[in-house]
Design a binder for these strands. Structure first.
Lengths: 344, 344
DNA sequence: GTTAGCACTCTCCTTTATCGAGTGCTAAAA
DNA sequence: TTTTAGCACTCGATAAAGGAGAGTGCTAAC
């Protein structure tokens, strides 16, 4: 059976309608609302064909039909017209990145927030992954008699710092000396390459301050490494309540529980590392838990290095044209902003 | 009418039962489950009295009775036995604050998380309020040819920093000079006291680097001031789904929407500044939106200065004894931790 | 003052009936 | 051969009706 022009038109009509209404679409609806010049009976026959071909599904015998994941895939790849952002949306995004000096994590957080506001879906965003980034500069800065700030600047301009207690009577000179040692040892390495075995030489330089040495290493390996790494930012988690299919408490709950699975979300975002926008529809997702959802992601970068991923998640009945255009725009805007601010 | 010993016993039984089951409690239930040595008819009479006195309410004629806010207040003040934490809970809290060097905000975030895990309610926590805190030390630290780190240490040991772009060719000496000027001008002041009018003298010192001056001031006033100020951390937002009264989608939604009102939550937390644990029950809350919820808060401090507030929010049918003991314990543990780490 | 007994109320759950949207099939029309 | 009108049939959704059960308040006896 061939997917001729009329079948395509009908399919498109059904997808459009279902995306808007969330109700199974019947042949009469298509005949009336979309002017195809044929009767509902003809459309009925075509729909039957489309179902046989795997593009449509029937929730039950006496209901209309619903697009399958395969149909959405076709829609995304071939049928949909990519929508441009309207002025208001573009303006909103522009404003976000204008004139503001933010900590990198704040930027990502705000991006997620705006993303969810514009799309009305739930947004997820991955902060830059430290494991991919090398250490450019380490500096211990005294702030106080008791505390110093351990500052690490990375190759991508990302900065990480932690307050750290210093032993009594330790002077600036010693701090500088340590900074130099750390730089010698770690410059150009990634955080994950900081190897405990490597450190015996460094340890000696600390002489009687072994405790200080330990806490320094602790901070460098654990604090910078694990906890920050899997940070997933989210926005608009409760947006799903606006959608009719989540008026069911069990579904809503399932979704919200999913959103608490930070590890899972992290893997989803981390796995899409191809430059640009990517759409994963329902069963296309490798993760079992996601087979009822679609995810649209985009990467963001600093210069030509991909730093992380942002995305929106929603029902497979997603406004793909809208989502794709917003993600595309946003990914680029964020990259621009970062490059302008942190690039050299 | 007097609230005699038997009435109290009956009231206590009803409250206990309702807290556990979330079902209106009938006279027969009280007679059977709680051994009071009288028949259900007697209890029925007493319950009628208790309703007249305002301690009980009836959802409808043929239902059992439900404690009123007044009853909960009595319960919290007089009736409940304050429960001690069990070993597992105490251990969990202890572990949280052990051996970890965290950014202050991370500490608060983790505290909120643990709080929600232990209580099974939604937790909210207020980060230390910068407006209350004075500036101890400002330092511009060069990290790079293009960037410096603006570090501000506050009187409470809290540290704030932001990466800031520096003009080309600006050397360390000049940065130090600026740091000194900023210190001269702002040491001992709060962030809200940073007055733009004051700055004309400082501005001159920057000579041709007016743009740099502007961004510095921008960061000091806006970035440190507004955005961080109202930061409310939350944990376990979806815990309410475990409670039977939130199986109703409208209620669940109302609650989640409430949790998105960061400003409101901020005010609630900021308003409870009396040292120690505070319980607000239903209509006792000044905010209209909260009249169906109860909130248990505790303050945390550094030394003897109150820094912020943590709390849990749930239905008025809350396990107060549990919540109060956890909040009490947690507030103190957090204060201890902070004092040990940042106090001098 | 306490309690057994009982009529009465009201929600909740189940059953039954009805409605209507939508389908698939057939046979006639184009 | 394709399209269409007509029609019987299916099945979910909604409403109405009918208990069942929990709980109350009142009365009268203990």
């Amino acid at each position: 059976m061939k997917l001729d022009a009329r079948k395509l038109k009908i399919l498109q009509a059904i997808i459009n309608d279902y995306i808007i209404t969330a109700e199974p679409v019947g042949s009469r609806t298509v005949a009336k609302k979309y002017d195809l010049g044929v009767s509902s009976a003809t459309i009925r026959n075509e729909m039957s064909d489309l179902e046989e071909m795997g593009y449509l599904e029937q929730p039950h015998t006496s209901a209309g039909r619903v697009p399958s994941d395969k149909a959405y895939r076709l829609y995304v790849d071939k049928l949909m017209k990519v929508r441009r952002l309207n002025d208001q949306e573009a303006e909103y995004i522009k404003e976000l990145y204008q004139n503001k000096i933010m900590q990198l994590e704040q930027v990502i957080f705000q991006t997620a927030k705006v993303l969810s506001e514009i799309t009305n879906y739930t947004s997820i965003a991955l902060a830059p992954q430290l494991s991919k980034v090398t250490i450019r500069h380490i500096q211990l800065v005294p702030v106080d008699m008791d505390f110093a700030l351990l500052v690490v600047v990375t190759s991508s301009g990302i900065l990480k710092d932690t307050l750290i207690r210093i032993p009594e009577g330790m002077d600036n000179e010693f701090l500088n000396k340590i900074s130099n040692i750390l730089n010698d040892k770690f410059q150009g390495k990634t955080f994950s390459e900081i190897d405990l075995k490597d450190l015996s030489a460094v340890r000696e330089a600390f002489k009687e301050n072994q405790k200080f040495f330990n806490s320094l290493v602790d901070v460098l390996t654990s604090s910078f490494h694990v906890s920050q790494e899997k940070e997933v930012f989210m926005g608009g988690t409760t947006n799903i309540f606006k959608l009719p299919e989540y008026q069911d408490i069990l579904r809503a709950r399932a979704f919200l529980n999913l959103m608490e699975e930070k590890d899972l979300l992290y893997h989803i975002l981390a796995s899409s590392q191809n430059n640009g926008v990517k759409v994963s529809i329902g069963t296309e997702n490798t993760h079992e838990e996601l087979r009822d959802y679609s995810i649209v992601t985009a990467t963001y970068s600093l210069g030509d290095r991909i730093l992380g991923t942002i995305g929106v998640i929603g029902p497979t009945r997603m406004e793909y044209s809208r989502a794709v255009s917003v993600m595309d725009h946003m990914g680029k805007a964020l990259s621009n902003y970062l490059t302008k601010l942190y690039g050299k």
